[in-house]
Amino acid sequence: MHVAEKLDTDLKELVVKDRLQGAPVMLECSDIKKVYPTKKGDYVVLEDLQLNIREGEFISIIGHSGCGKSTLLTMIAGLNGISGGQIMVDGAPIRGAGPDRAVVFQSPSLFPWLTALQNVMIGVKQVFPHASKKQKLEICKYYLNKVGLGNDFDKKATELSQGMQQRVGIARAFALKPKVLLLDEPFGMLDSLTRGELQDVLLEVWQREKITAVMVTHDVDESIFLADRVIMMTSGPYAKIGDELIIPFERPRNRIDVLEHPNYYDYRGYLIDFLEG
């Protein structure tokens, strides 16, 4: 890793104390290639992309708009076809979309004719058909409460603000108990202060189950605060993984402590240099 070259030596020790040491690989992307046919010929968005993520790891992917990070995410989600290479989750190649790779979309995409509870319930019914009605209800209420909507179960999706809708989106994804949680710039549409609130909410729910998570974002501070590892993608065409940065901050993470950490701005500078350079 390039981190150790540029930072203090005591950081090297932190890197070794990697909490995920020994964890099995959950998500494996090998030789990924994505081609879009256009009028002027084939446009190769991604080529020769390799990515391995271990179980319980939280990865954030940063890069410029249009570099293909969303494309990669939708390919892992199964909503986008793969032109070459293979994506394996938990040892098996993926086939189409599924709740094992739950997605939190950029726009909440709640069904506006349903209430918050019903939106989560529709997913719960799909993955827990063997559960009793009471259990299903408990699952929905548990996650909605965790994201801070304990009083808003029966509000129609249209009566909730953008931030609250996105909370339901998070609850809906977690309630599916996915193997991999995929987040596609989930807070991009929110103002930077609501974004902070929702980042805390996300970590709060994630903390319990430590689901393998991949989050695409363009906000450098967000990626440092949330992730164990920040993956930097080069710009398209022919985009691939450019660089990696391990974030050794201990969990659970407190925002002020993270901001005050002596190396915070070094990490931040490293990422900004990558984006600007």
Partner: peptide, 29 residues
């Protein structure tokens, strides 16, 4: 129908009947 709704239905793996009656019809109502 909004592509996002279709994507959600895909992730949840709703079958065709559920897709039509629970997603497409209410969305196009």
């Amino acid at each position: 129908v909004d592509k996002d709704f279709i994507n959600v239905a895909k992730v949840l793996r709703l079958n065709i009947g559920q897709n039509i009656f629970k997603v497409i019809l209410p969305a196009s109502f």
